[in-house]
Design a protein around this nucleic acid. Structure first.
Lengths: 242, 242
DNA sequence: GAGTGGTCTAGACCACCGC
DNA sequence: CGGTGGTCTAGACCACTCG
């Protein structure tokens, strides 16, 4: 029930109440909720206020309207989760595979370099170069090179990057990643890649570049990554809206 | 100026008018637009109607509000446009290239086939198979095969698919595409691809598969596409959120 | 205090759907 | 036909910002 004396806006109370109703009473997708006029009368509020509550739920993808028919519970609640930035480890777990990591090498570099440029660092800044072999169910899938500024990461030990780098950034350092730009190309494996990925010379590979940015006002670049994926073991899946 | 007699909703007219104002008059980010009451008085409409127009622009990321201060032009206009489903033609224009198309062949097929399965069609349904060579600045970029159900598309003529298939679906047929699933792999060019794309045997290529769905309640599959991109001329760019 | 956006009311007419 | 959501009005009071 909504409380008209409360400082909390009525539309907001109603929004939460409707959401609760759907979750608790286990309403099926495509089943109708009461009409706007019913809600208005039941709570003794204006229909426009009811509409504001329902509008919010519609834009959250929880409800949908059909003119002349009514308002219904949506099927998919997570329209926002489309095309999410994921780490290799998360990606593999989504595919029901077990990720693991083998560190090939770790260097500290000063500029100038492409990585200094991409990460918007001065040439004096130290940047880690970390090369890791990524495996799924113990099969090599990708050879990955991460560049990340020491100033933001601090001293790095091997064991900290033996699992998920994203997890380390987020859980241990408390950094929050906001977004990233990826590009995906095709190419042929070079001799180093052939060795680590256990494929043949000139086998096709997917080449992924990514720059990720922190969720701060400046949108600070936090990592620049180049990954080489075995084409016979990996493909990118993307859901897109129009 | 809004027309109160028009069948087009006032809020929608105003929404477009404000958007135009911002684009045309080259308003800078963070500069204020007129207040809601000003718009209401100027057009002789209710403030609630003005709010509906502005709300839409806010949710599109074009404007932002600050309580007690006003409504302002946003910095980034296209937060929503992340990872958008785009046609080849749109994609090329975004890259400042001129797209063109050469139709290789067009068949009508009945099932069973993988396309019938993907498009959720019965074996009796006729499905178009359209093979097109896609060029940018007259250079071959991709060899594309589209499967689309005749039931939804109607009779197809060559000239209707010489430009953008999406444009034909949307502008001519009035179909609205909601979302699509894409996968991106790497592979080696086969002899047919070599010929059309003017590359060498065993050159690397990007293989893209896509299924797109209509914006109806059922989410009807409207196209299943396989595209082979020249790896030396094309890469996919994706912006992702976390 | 004047102006802004945020919330809310109590109506109204319309287009559309399903019976 | 009655019920639905879509649009719109002409007000109102509030919380907030700024000079």
């Amino acid at each position: 029930m909504v409380n008209k004396q409360s400082k909390i806006p009525i539309y907001y109370q109603l929004e939460k109440a409707i959401k609760n109703e759907i979750d608790k009473s286990g309403m099926e997708p495509h089943s109708p909720i009461p009409s706007e006029r019913e809600y208005a009368e039941k709570h003794g509020i204006s229909r426009m206020t009811v509409r504001q509550a329902i509008n919010n739920l519609v834009s959250q993808g929880i409800l949908y309207r059909e003119r002349g028919r009514g308002t219904f519970v949506s099927e998919q609640k997570f329209e926002q989760d489309i095309s999410q930035l994921t780490s290799f480890s998360e990606d593999m777990r989504n595919r029901h595979l077990t990720p693991s990591t083998k560190i090939i090498k770790m260097n500290e570099c000063v500029g100038p370099s492409a990585a200094h440029d991409k990460l918007k660092r001065t040439n004096e800044d130290v940047i880690y170069e970390i090369v890791r072999l990524r495996l799924a169910n113990n099969e090599p899938i990708a050879l990955e090179t991460i560049y990340t500024p020491k100033k933001l990461i601090g001293e790095l030990k091997d064991h900290q990057i033996e699992t998920s780098f994203y997890h380390y950034l987020e859980a241990t350092l408390g950094l929050s990643i906001k977004r990233g730009f990826q590009s995906i190309e095709a190419g042929l494996a070079n001799s180093e890649e052939v060795t680590y990925l256990k494929i043949k010379k000139n086998d096709p590979v997917l080449i992924m570049h990514r720059i990720s940015f922190l969720d701060d006002a400046a949108g600070t670049p936090i990592e620049f990554v180049k990954s080489i994926y075995r084409a016979d073991r990996y493909k990118f899946n993307i859901e897109m809206n129009r």
